[in-house]
């Protein structure tokens, strides 16, 4: 009995070693995923982000068709990188709405003129309130919302061409 507890420190160290070895072998990510996936879109109604296009409300996502909800900003650099990919998806008939975070109308206008406008509606979220309600932690992010307004999928970071098949699959699954 007295002999056994002398080995407890070594056993504890073994435990520590195991945890560290496991932790070292799988690099953990720093992304914080939204816990709202599978839940209904929070109620919101945002004014237009720039003059020519309508604003965005949660009601738009109740029309029976799955839609993409893109969170972007004119001041965000990766958003420029994903713009052509989004445009390509829009050309293929994917309905995309957007929320512009902390943005001024003239900046949104300039951004869309320069990088293309794949969006049907753009709401302006000047103090990130809707972004936080969605559990989104940065720009750009893209959600797949099904026809009944349930959030089905979240993509964090800019959408690269290789990400498109997965997002298309998520859209089909949300049919």
């Amino acid at each position: 009995m007295k002999r056994t507890w002398l080995w407890i420190p070594l056993a504890l160290f073994g435990l520590f070693f195991a945890v560290m070895a496991v932790g070292l072998s799988k690099p953990s990510s720093t992304t914080i995923t939204s816990k709202m996936i599978g839940k209904p879109l929070p109620k919101f109604s945002l004014p237009p982000a720039h003059a020519p296009q309508p604003g965005l409300g949660s009601a738009s996502f109740q029309q029976g068709q799955p839609r993409l909800l893109n969170i972007f900003a004119s001041w965000c650099i990766p958003c420029i990188a994903e713009a052509p990919v989004l445009s390509e998806m829009a050309r293929k008939g994917v309905p995309i709405d957007a929320i512009a975070i902390r943005d001024r109308p003239q900046d949104v206008d300039r951004f869309l003129k320069r990088n293309g406008n794949p969006y049907q509606r753009i709401g302006s979220d000047v103090n990130s309130a809707v972004q936080m309600a969605l559990g989104s932690s940065g720009v750009p992010e893209t959600f797949v919302v099904d026809g009944r307004g349930i959030i089905r999928y979240q993509h964090i970071g800019d959408i690269r061409p290789e990400d498109v098949p997965e997002i298309m699959a998520a859209l089909r699954a949300a049919q």
Partner: peptide, 13 residues
Amino acid sequence: RAEPVEAPFSHSR
């Protein structure tokens, strides 16, 4: 401050 910095970032966080 708003000028592009070090693209490409995968996520602006």
